[in-house]
Design a protein around this nucleic acid. Structure first.
Lengths: 144, 144
DNA sequence: AAGCAGTCTTGACTCGTTCCAGTCTGTCGG
DNA sequence: CCGACAGACTGGAACGAGTCAAGACTGCTT
């Protein structure tokens, strides 16, 4: 995605346009499912010195603005992706932690139908499929 | 659940029967969705001095043995519950973190049907419904 | 061009969790 | 019943992701 597009995305969310923000946004677009540490390294490779604090802050702001989505499978560090608002889910490899996108099986947007929600007002259903990725499956079962 | 039942549960998993393990097992049965810190306090109230290390170790062992299930919604600490193997899901309150059980909407066991799993071998589908619990909903919208 | 609200930098710090070495204790063979 | 040993527990240190705080800096508006 071109820099001017990213700029207009930020402007559209009435956020200030700063170098760190553009770099973070670009990094997440280029590397979906990257963790915070990887993003910090990507941003630094792009801009030079940037404090991890700035990256954390930018990630939180962009997430709250709805420009990014934060995903955090149990036992893993936070990861971010730029696909928002299209209600897709994820497969996570138990062995190496790789994440892949999965379209919503149900298809229609909410995809949330708890049989009994105990009075909770549910606004999102998050689905995580746990399994083994092709690479790890091959590495773990060398028999035959 | 009676102590002798817990004992046979441990024996059935070919695990040693120790006081900390019985206490942890009992605490999780009595307080589903409790976090580690709460469990440590419960166990100590029961037995006196127990190192947090022992509790962490017991929780991991019991989880690996399939006697407990660990749930860890994004941004929260680990919680444990004793309901295993019945494929139910959870509603989590965004405001206070309360967790409630929700029966699987689909009903049948696997409940996993990713449209395209990218070659992953999927063995579990975890569903987390995010929303607001009745208490927080009332507290957050005092209008009217 | 000026001023301000909002960002970024630096560095210390919290908190959940894990690692390590040593001691203790269920459990099993005699 | 008793000794021996693998496995469990203790205490303390360490780790890493993430947060807090104070001050310097910079987009944005006028």
């Amino acid at each position: 995605m071109a820099p001017q597009d990213l700029t207009s995305v930020l402007r559209g969310a009435s956020l200030r346009v700063t170098r760190p923000r553009l770099a973070v946004l670009a990094a997440v677009h280029d590397h979906p499912h990257a963790d915070t540490d990887a993003l910090i390294r990507l941003v630094r490779a792009d801009l030079g010195a940037v404090s991890h604090q700035a990256v954390y802050d930018v990630l939180r702001v962009l997430t709250e603005a709805g420009l990014l989505r934060r995903i955090q499978p149990a036992g893993a560090t936070a990861r971010y992706e730029a696909r928002v608002g299209d209600n897709h889910h994820h497969v996570v490899c138990r062995s190496c932690g790789t994440i892949a996108d999965v379209e919503c099986a149900v298809g229609h947007a909410p995809c949330l139908t708890a049989s009994d929600s105990h009075g909770f007002v549910v606004d999102e259903a998050e689905v995580v499929y746990w399994g083994t990725c092709p690479g790890c499956a091959a590495a773990l079962t060398p028999e035959k």
